[in-house]
Design a protein around this nucleic acid. Structure first.
Lengths: 228, 228, 228, 228
DNA sequence: AATGAATGAGAATTCATTCAT
DNA sequence: GATGAATGAATTCTCATTCAT
């Protein structure tokens, strides 16, 4: 499993939607403060409960200033999702660096994903809510993650590490779905007294999932009952 | 995989939130009309775009009447999600009736789920949106589905049809996550010119998923590299 | 000069823009209170300084109620202009009733117009401001007045009371323009200490204007120097 | 009819409202660019739709710079109206030069006024809008025009070219009102496919108006029925 | 049991003006 | 002289909910 980062260009020069001109250094700092505030507010309150006033207040910035940097509530939300996508992919590819086997890489990739989810539980909610706020940007999010996953699977199939009968695209989406629901169920729903999720997945669950995935991907030694 | 219906009692006598008394026959009919209108409106417009007026207008009922049957917008939404949950589970268990093998049952259960999703794409969206409207009711939804799934897995493990090393709860959630994302990606995102999703999943995807699950669940013949 | 009232239908049944249904009696009363409040507020503050809150506060009505009766600030403004148009035409035709000669009718018509302007000075401002708020409705206003005027001129030409060489349409617009500017200058600009305009036009001005119009319309006895 | 230009001093030295000191040559150029931009923007969009940013952007000047030259949006608007007043009066007096008779002068004056209106329809709209933005400056506008008109009428009365029974002030205002409404109706409302008004007034209208005015002003040969 | 007029808190957004650079 | 980021008061409009009929 590889997540070739940089496949997508996230570094385009930032433009003020109000003036159409590139941001000055001061401007970039303000924009960043807004994004950070939005992260907290959207995460804590959800998209519809959040409001631009809440965001600017948290950012310690005048209300009108918001519109120098973002067109609307939706547009800062989208910017935030894209930002989170970049970070979760980074967390995953970082975790996978130095993996020595396919299984190791799998395990590490999921561990990276779960760690990000556990550390930013509320942020993960933001991503999922995007389905109802900005479906296009959610597609982008999932697609970017799957692309890397799928490429890794193909490579592993070539060297015989993964069952060649599996369709890589289907498999990639299926595995991501697994990860999402497991993360939701066993991290986001398992809050302690302070409302914090566990720092990491329960080992029973993590190992159970690892075994499941290992089973699923391993090349078959004997030919099982064929499909249909 | 079994979905023991009736595990949850959906047939409690209906009470008017306004008067606190049970509904008359006429009242029940009005309530039903409201729910049916809500189904269409929430499905077409989503929770936040929907409004009580739109629902009562569609139901051909006075605005004030709404509050004789439901406490709030959220409460009719929740009632609807519970109704949909019942129906999707019914679609799945119906599909599984008469399956002769574990694999067959798996396949049929997923097929039932996908059929429901394809036939009521917007309704399924309602269920997913519940995560942000009423998290408790979404948990209920998932949990009810998983419960049946998990029970089925345990039985299959006992008779040796499923790898005994798998944790049934983890596995059930993982498989449901797979199903969800596959359904989202290959049904909900694949609209034709009229915006209708395909009537059923692309066979490549369906077979790919079946193989993946079959791999994942099958008892191992040889002992693979164990988890760290 | 005749102002055949009823040429335009102002009595169409009133419809709620929110529900699309005809107004109940209670609804009509509320609508009327809003229009009366709007009259005062627009007159005192002008269109842009006026606000929907100011209107509803003055009407002693909840803010949200406004939108049950009017779509927007502009739409109540337009309704008001149409209402004023009806009233100024009524004031004019009433004044002209019982005039025995053409000159008498002229004089009475203008007197009616000036009386209305003097009694509702600020309202007259509303009409003029319509040019910049809703040009279509202003056209309607002027056109409705001119239509009656023009018809009267044609009749008077037929019986030889008015110079047949005059173009009736041009003449009607010209006379209305006269009346407007005279009213503006010698009524609206001539406020007393309390900001009230004079109850009627200075006789010097009124007589001066009467003579001017009488000159202008009278059939010529000798043929003057013809137009180029 | 004469329009003694220069009756009002438009050439006072320009002062920066920010520093209180006279403008440098560079400053005067910037001020001029702002006024030119304001002319276009106010004309195209009207006072309330116009904004300082639009003006400075059009002028190619920084937003903050605006306040070095004008106190406020209203003050640049007023400066513009005064400028337009100068130009429309110039257009009129230029047209009247070389008129040989009173009637000729009348006709030429109105023609000059209509030519300006036809050539700068949007600018003329600016002047009319002044009534609601800055009533004082509109009074100034009208008064300056009327003053010249009235002086001309008095002279003509002295030499017997104009009915001595007419009140010159009333007459001047009445004639200006005529011109305004005729211009509005037959120039500003008569746009072609491109939204351009006709280059000049329809001859039927122009001649009709000329006859009307000629009738109105001509000394009476026989004594008509006197005013009540 | 049914109705729909009334409500007002709350949201997004605009823009003239200020002021530190 | 010139700049443009920052500001926040003010505005329009929505809609879940109440309540008198």
């Amino acid at each position: 499993m590889t997540l070739p980062d940089g496949m997508v260009d996230d570094d385009a020069e930032l433009i003020s939607p109000a003036t159409g001109r590139p941001l000055t250094k001061r401007g970039e700092a303000t924009r960043r403060r807004l994004l950070e505030a939005a992260e907290v507010v959207f995460a804590e309150q959800g998209y519809h409960e959040a409001s631009i006033v809440k965001i600017t207040e948290r950012a310690g910035i005048g209300l009108g200033t918001f519109y120098l940097y973002f067109d609307s509530k939706q547009s800062i939300f989208e910017a935030l999702v894209i930002d989170l996508n970049r970070r979760v992919r980074h967390s995953m590819s970082e975790a996978m660096e130095g993996a020595t086997s396919r299984l190791d890489a799998e395990r590490a990739g999921f561990a990276g994903f779960f760690r990000f989810t556990a550390e930013h539980p509320a942020l993960y909610r933001v991503v999922r809510e995007a389905e109802f706020v900005s479906p296009e940007v959610l597609r982008l999010h999932y697609t970017r993650i799957v692309e890397g996953y799928e490429a890794g699977l193909r490579q592993a199939q070539e060297v015989g590490d993964v069952d060649r009968a599996l369709d890589p695209e289907t498999t990639a989406w299926a595995l991501m779905g697994m990860g999402e629901l497991i993360g939701m169920r066993f991290l986001l729903w398992e809050r302690d007294a302070d409302g914090r999720p566990p720092a990491q997945l329960d080992p029973v669950v993590f190992d159970g999932m690892t075994r499941l995935i290992d089973n699923a991907l391993a090349p078959r030694t004997t030919q099982p009952e064929g499909p249909k």
